[in-house]
């Protein structure tokens, strides 16, 4: 769609949505949000972008094939499962640790965060894979 206002809005919305999704992802454990919601928010922004600019642009934006996104998401989930096994706990046990970073910031994190990141990435991959397939086949790009 060659509407300049729509194009500008879509870009803006994509940025806002991506930022919002990251925010939802990070605070998800203690506040509303979480991996799935964040993923779907990011995907919504990308869908709008795809509708306005065409699916090829989104594929370019994503850099990798959507199937790779799904795969890497699931792989990250796998990492969160393996870490407890490596540390001698049953799989999927939540392990927490506090990492101190410079500037006296301490980051409290653990395997559930990794898990959520995996969910986030694979959800983006799954939804966009569906949308891009449909758009390609049904020629929504023209």
């Amino acid at each position: 769609m060659q509407n300049i206002i729509l194009q500008k809005t879509a870009k803006l919305i994509l940025i806002i949505m991506t930022a919002a999704s990251l925010w939802l992802l990070i605070r998800g454990h203690n506040n509303p949000g979480g991996g799935f919601i964040a993923g779907i928010v990011a995907a919504t922004g990308l869908i709008l972008y795809a509708i306005v600019f065409g699916s090829q642009k989104v594929e370019k934006l994503l850099k990798y094939n959507t199937r790779n996104w799904i795969g890497s998401g699931l792989a990250i989930i796998l990492v969160s499962i393996i870490i407890p096994i490596a540390l001698g706990e049953p799989p999927m046990t939540a392990m927490w640790t506090t990492i101190s970073l410079p500037f006296s910031i301490s980051l409290h994190t653990g395997t559930p965060h990794i898990f959520e990141t995996g969910v986030y990435i694979s959800v983006i991959g799954i939804i966009l894979s569906i949308i891009i397939t449909i758009m390609e086949v049904l020629k929504w790009n023209s």
Partner: peptide, 21 residues
């Protein structure tokens, strides 16, 4: 146990993480 204040999310990613998977 789950170190999460959002109960729904804690169930999703911790207590019942296998279901989510």
């Amino acid at each position: 146990l789950g170190e999460g204040k959002n109960i729904v999310n804690t169930i999703l990613v911790d207590f019942r993480a296998l279901d989510t998977l």
